[in-house]
């Protein structure tokens, strides 16, 4: 029987600090408004837009527009692929930490 290499789940797309935090935020909830994610991360809208575009391009995040109080708001959601990729990435990070502890 072969065991999958946990490091194979390491995902360069998710690894960037802001994108990791976006994924962590969206993973914890069902859906979050763009403005809320921006506030939670403490970044400028343009920065969040850029990272969301990368995650959307990778198929990890979907965007939905909804009107509330006559204003258009964008809601972000982690896709099924995004959830799987994020979980695999965390597994890879844990494996790296475990390697360090074993060697150190």
């Amino acid at each position: 029987m072969t065991t999958a290499d946990p490091m194979s789940g390491f995902d360069e797309t998710i690894h960037a600090p802001n994108r990791l935090r976006i994924c962590a935020t969206l993973y914890a909830v069902d859906e979050a408004e763009f403005g809320t994610v921006r506030e939670l991360l403490g970044v400028a809208p343009s920065v969040l837009s850029k990272h969301v575009a990368v995650l959307t391009e990778a198929g990890y995040v979907t965007q939905r527009r909804a009107t509330r109080d006559t204003r258009q708001r964008v809601w972000l959601r982690l896709t099924k692929e995004g959830r799987t990729a994020y979980e695999s990435h965390l597994t890879a990070l844990r494996a790296i930490v475990a390697t360090g502890e074993r060697d150190g």
Binding site: L20, R21, C23, T99, E101
Partner: peptide
């Protein structure tokens, strides 16, 4: 791949964000 210390910090950051 990141160094173990960096990976640990990123895991902590992800947990905090969640």
């Amino acid at each position: 791949h990141p160094e173990p210390s960096e990976a640990k910090a990123m895991l902590a950051e992800a947990a905090q964000a969640g």
